[in-house]
Amino acid sequence: MTIADKINPLNTFRGASRYVLDEELAKIVNVSIAIEMPLLLKGEPGTGKSMLAYAIAESLGMPLIVLNVKSSMKLVDALYQYDTLTRLNDSRFGDSTRNVSNIEEYITMGKIGQAFVADNRTVLLIDEIDKADTDFQDDMLDVLDQMQFDIIEIDKTISAVHRPVVVITSNAKKDLSDPFLGRCNFHHIAFPDSDMMRRIINVHFPNLQGDMVRACVDAFYRLRDIEGIEKKPATRELINWIRALKSDPDFVLSELRRGDVPYLGVLFKKSPDMHIASRRIAQMIR
C-alpha cells in the first residue's frame, strides 16, 4: 500500500458533527489508522473516550461495532457463540429449518467476529477493557494482532476481511499489562479546559446564547473545584444540566451568575457530594 492510499482524504478522520476534536487527538487517531494499530484511550469518565469511536465511525462513514466488556466475559464470547442448546433441541424435535448435522448453522459471531467478517471496514470499540482480567486482555490483543481466530468446533479460521479501526477505552488508574500496552498506541484524554468546554457546549446546543454558555461553564468549573467531592461532574452531567435549565421556564440567568445553582442533583450523583456542594454554594451566595 502506498502512502497516498493510507492518507486517502476519504479515510482520514476529521471529527464528527457532535464531537469536538483536539489537534493532538486528531493526529493520533490518523496515525493509528494509518499504521493499523489499536488506539488505547484513558482518561476521566466524561472526557469522551467512547464518543470518539462513534465520531470516527460517523466521519469516516464506517459501521460501528461496540464490545462492552464485562468482568465475567470470556474471550470466546467476544469472538463467536456456539448455540449448543438450540442444536440439541433441533436434534430432538427436528422441526426447524436448520440442518442439525451442520454445526456452522449454530455458530453466531460475537462482536469481534462481526467486525472481522463485515463487508466493509468497521470501527470496533472495545469499551472499558479494564473490567476484564489480564488474560482476556492479552488473548484479545493476540487476536487483534493477527486479525484472525479459530472456531474450534468446526475447525475453521476466521480472518478479517478488512482490518477494523480498533479503539479501546479504559477507566483504570492502574496500568494494563505490558504485552497489551506494547501493541497499542496510547493517549490520555485530559479533562477539557473551559475554552474547549464552551466549544463542546456549542456543538451540542448550537442555539444557546453566548452569555448563557459562559455562565453555565463557569459555574460548572466552580463546582468541580469544590474540595472533597468524590465524583466530580463531567461533560455528560454538564450537558444534561444545561438541558434541564433550558427546559425550565422559571430559570433566570442572573440567578446563576449570582452563584445560585438549580438542579444540583443532575450534576452530583452521590448524596455526600451533593451535601458538600450545596453547603459550599450557600456559603458562596452569602
Binding site: 502512502i3 489537534e23 496515525v31 497499542c184 496510547f186 490520555h188
Partner: peptide, 22 residues
C-alpha cells in the same frame, strides 16, 4: 511514511507510540 510534518505532531505522535501510561 511521511505522516509527521512538524515538531508539534512529532511530540504528540511519538508520545502516543512510545509512552503507554499517563
Amino acid at each position: 511514511l511521511g505522516l509527521i510534518h512538524s515538531v508539534d505532531e512529532f511530540y504528540t505522535v511519538a508520545r502516543s507510540i512510545l509512552v503507554k501510561s499517563e
